[in-house]
Design a protein around this nucleic acid. Sequence first.
DNA 1: TGCAGTGTACTATGATTCGTAATACAGTTA
DNA 2: TAACTGTATTACGAATCATAGTACACTGCA
Lengths: 132, 132
Amino acid sequence: MFELDVRSRKPIYEQLVERLKELIITEVLKANEQLPSVRMLAQQLTINPNTIQKAYRELESQSYIYSIKGKGSFVSPATLKQNSEKIVKVKHELSKLISEALYLGITADELFKMIKEIETTVGGGIESDQNQ
Amino acid sequence: MFELDVRSRKPIYEQLVERLKELIITEVLKANEQLPSVRMLAQQLTINPNTIQKAYRELESQSYIYSIKGKGSFVSPATLKQNSEKIVKVKHELSKLISEALYLGITADELFKMIKEIETTVGGGIESDQNQ
DNA sequence: TGCAGTGTACTATGATTCGTAATACAGTTA
DNA sequence: TAACTGTATTACGAATCATAGTACACTGCA
């Protein structure tokens, strides 16, 4: 199901996130389909369950999947795919604007603050992933 | 000329960058005015010249200042002030886009990563920081 | 030419962060 | 209860970061 490059400079959990996103977006993994459990996948890939867990947590925070204690992790239905075109578009526009902003001397720090402010103002945001 | 908080969690060189940007934008430091030399300023602030150097390098990469080997570092003329309108505009556009992104379910975290990636790719931010 | 000023590059090092692992806790279902 | 699930806590080596030490290279002036 997965191929990972363990000796890559990219951390394993990031590779996992990318690969899974791809599978979800392309609907190889369908809505509400159950993902392999953290332990199963860990064993299969001969890495630590916690690494899978980190990838899953990341995917959940980006609402690609949802997890239920004791039951499993599942592909998020609809909403994401419905918006996927818009999302791609917005991301692209954002990239350009961010590049321009950085070029103009606005610092990444400044942008971070901006986002946090908007996040709390709009209230729509999901809280972010504080790595242990 | 400067006050720094050495025990702040913010690195010294960053504080320096911020403070100098402010002085340049508010035109306390005029165009083409020579900045204190790395050694002078280092001695005055009782920190290592290399820390000043890092701040100056950062400022130069964002074209707030320019440096000439053997002569000194100077405030960049014009360009930045010319950009100030652009900056306001870009920030405004960014606000709107970020709101939309968050609304679409893109997380703040994802945006952070995006920025970091662009920062390193474009080299817009703190670039040439290749330690050893 | 030499000296004293300037910026720059390289290396070292302690502190912090990062990626992963080990282990224990907690919910679900049969 | 047993055998699955996800989650939280802690530990630890590796990588990165912030700063320092030191040496190099250029400029301008006596």
